[in-house]
Design a protein around this nucleic acid. Sequence first.
DNA 1: TTGAAAGCGCTACCAT
DNA 2: ATGGTAGCGCTTTCAA
Lengths: 354, 354
Amino acid sequence: MKPTLQDVADAVGVSRSTASNAYSRPDQLSAALRAKILDAARRLGYPGPNPTARSLRRGFVGAIGVLFTSELSYAFTDPFAVRFLAGVSRTAERHGTSLLLMPLPADRARVRSVVENASVDGFCVYCVGDEEWVLQAIRDRGQPYVTTAPRADAGPDDRYVGIDERAAARSVADHVAALGHRRVALLADTVLPGAPPGPLRLAGPGDAPHPTTRGRLTGFADAFAAVGVAWPALTLLNATANSRAAGAAAVAEVLAGDEPPTAVLACSDVLSLGVLDMLAAAGHRPPHPISVTGFDDIAEAAAAGLTTVRQPAEEKGRLAAELLLEPPTTPADGHRLLPTDLVVRTSTGPVPGS
Amino acid sequence: MKPTLQDVADAVGVSRSTASNAYSRPDQLSAALRAKILDAARRLGYPGPNPTARSLRRGFVGAIGVLFTSELSYAFTDPFAVRFLAGVSRTAERHGTSLLLMPLPADRARVRSVVENASVDGFCVYCVGDEEWVLQAIRDRGQPYVTTAPRADAGPDDRYVGIDERAAARSVADHVAALGHRRVALLADTVLPGAPPGPLRLAGPGDAPHPTTRGRLTGFADAFAAVGVAWPALTLLNATANSRAAGAAAVAEVLAGDEPPTAVLACSDVLSLGVLDMLAAAGHRPPHPISVTGFDDIAEAAAAGLTTVRQPAEEKGRLAAELLLEPPTTPADGHRLLPTDLVVRTSTGPVPGS
DNA sequence: TTGAAAGCGCTACCAT
DNA sequence: ATGGTAGCGCTTTCAA
């Protein structure tokens, strides 16, 4: 059996409390006694206070849970997610807090169980979807949490850090519209759950269940509506994942069609890189014959010459962690909207023949 | 006050154990009673069993700690580390185990404290250095651990997954030597702690304190010794970090010198990409006028046409986690050596004028 | 400066 | 199928 604090105390002939103080509150006993206790501990092979027991007693853990939609491995594969995490970890470091990375199972029952079983002091929810029930599970557990998207229905306990998705999307779409593009395709990940890759009809951008996607599609639509291109005239393309391959697969059909779009606006850089891949395979390089835009401004975007919207990934992570670790005094302080920038590179140009 | 299991039990008029069973062992009570208990819990706002208390009682946590040298944010910045983590997380997922990502403070005292305070069932040590005292801290805590480098002095409790660093390094150096290169530079991260960027003298490759670096430098040296180039004739270059920028900075001086090397062999792809950056800035593109090799074969290596050594990053992570979560039956099973491949691309070529 | 007592919230065993 | 009992290992008043 592993020795416990009691064993150490017994060995030295002091009480358990004194032995505990030797570890947690050195100022509460004489240096000599403390040395004696630590010595005995070493001799007995006492591993030091059990962190779990300590957390139980103290009432907090010193760790925050970071929840991801889909597999945990996704977190390490998506460059934007990685930078977000880097930001979170920077803040956590400063607070001596660990990060418990948690994959979010697809089915709701298991989500509850994951949330209920995590030994953490709060949650950072980095979700791709509108996982309202995830938040409910967290609320039910009575833990604080921060999400990474603005929430219209944010209650006083809700904290979030996000960007104005709609305005950001509109900025890049305005740019494309100004270049004369009218026959355009919009590309998003999982517009509707379970939808196949490729063209998809939706009554309006507001019908996308996912709030981030909804915001961006709406912003795109706004820009084109302003130049007389109504929603039904826009081609909506569904990708089955947020990856290059899925992006490529999603555009394959329309690119091969009779009247391909003159521009493709994607909801993420990763997706748009897939479009570039597909075009490159055909020997094309944007803006000829097709302009392509992304969203996020990940590192690869610069190398690819991608026109995109930059959002401050690390900053977002940093703020999210701060919102959790340094609780805002007023509920209003619990909401942060970050700035975005349109980054124009070489992947967009005037519509051919204009 | 948050209600506890006792409150729920009281409300329903059952014992605490029965209430507990309603959550943890549904088969131990009638469905009707269970429903009644769960209902009361909901009504009272009982958040479900406290994970910390449960862990304490059960004796295990359901999480493993992943220890990184340097900042946690590094983990998300180095592509090889990211892929390693993806592998670890895949296995962890399968076991319903969470990952606690832990930065490793520089000073030993804080390392102990970090290790001692983590609520985990074991550690995966992904270290850049030869942090023997880290392992000692873990051993002292009586926790299992796995490291990511072969250890000559591995005891029965040591588990590791690694590659044959020396042989792998030799394979790429043999290739470079066969191309006729004799005036070469070797580039490594933190050859000696605190050393400035650029050329550095070392009596022999065995003097590098860091085992991975030592292994790779030794492999490089082996190859050139075999063609008559002894260690002192090789230029050793120190980088102050494992980053492109540090790689670039490390080679700046020798590239600008009178007799620049005809080949640079780096201990990581990231470093060699920095060399490519520096050469590109001068309008050069390997193999002209200088051949460059990397190590790891990260994604960017292919795009850059880098000749390198591929090591299975995800596999390494997967195996590391398995070693921890599916304890080997015999100590010998605790050691895994993974295969590596020489990947020849365009960054290496015959020595100019040969 | 030290110690005694009282739990933190839960689960597992054993009995009924 | 249900309940009683006995801790898991620790920290923290409070009193001495």
